[in-house]
Computed example of a mutant assay.
Amino acid sequence: METKMTTEDFEHHTEAAQLATVNGPVVLTEEGNPSYIFLCYEDYLKLAGTGVNDA
């Protein structure tokens, strides 16, 4: 499940966006159009195909 928020909301509510990544990616929009994806590092590693980093 993805969450959507404007880039302006993201600037003011970064912690809420971080918490929302537990449920999946957060789609950041500009002028109503998707522009960025904010996701947790573990999900990024899965997408990048590198697995979970032990560091």
Rank of each mutant, 00 (worst) to 15 (best):
D54G: 08
D43A: 10
L28P: 00
A55W: 15
K4D: 04
S35R: 15
D9A: 05
T50E: 14
E2N: 09
H12R: 12
I37V: 15
G49C: 14
D9C: 04
M1V: 01
H13M: 06
E8L: 10
A55T: 13
H13A: 08
G51P: 09
L28E: 03
V22W: 04
H12D: 06
A17K: 01
F10V: 02
N53H: 08
V26S: 01
Q18M: 12
A16P: 02
T6P: 04
A16T: 12
E31N: 13
E42Y: 07
G32R: 04
A48W: 06
E42W: 06
A20R: 00
T6Q: 05
A16Y: 03
G51N: 14
T14A: 09
D54K: 14
P25D: 06
P34F: 07
D54R: 09
F38C: 02
K46P: 00
L28A: 05
Q18G: 13
T7N: 06
E11G: 08
T14C: 07
E15F: 09
L28M: 07
E30G: 03
A17P: 01
Q18F: 13
E30L: 05
V22H: 12
I37H: 01
Y36Q: 12
F38W: 01
E31F: 06
H13K: 13
D9M: 03
T7V: 14
D9G: 00
L47Q: 13
H12K: 09
E2C: 07
T7R: 06
A16S: 07
I37L: 14
A55N: 15
L45K: 07
V26K: 03
T14Y: 10
E15H: 12
E31L: 04
M1W: 06
K46D: 11
A20I: 02
A20H: 01
Y36P: 01
L28Q: 05
C40N: 12
E31G: 03
E8G: 00
E31S: 11
A55L: 11
T21N: 03
L28I: 03
L45T: 10
E11W: 08
T50C: 08
P34R: 07
V26Y: 01
T6Y: 01
E15D: 15
N23F: 10
G32I: 04
F10I: 00
M5S: 02
K4R: 08
D54E: 13
V52G: 05
A55K: 15
A17F: 02
T21V: 08
P25C: 04
P25W: 02
E15L: 09
H12P: 02
L47V: 13
Y44M: 15
L28W: 06
I37R: 07
E8D: 09
G24P: 01
K46E: 14
Y41I: 09
M5N: 02
C40W: 03
E31V: 03
T29G: 02
A48Q: 10
K46V: 15
K46M: 14
V52A: 06
D43N: 09
E31A: 15
T50W: 11
T21G: 00
N33F: 06
N23Q: 11
M5R: 02
I37D: 05
A17N: 04
M5Y: 00
T50L: 12
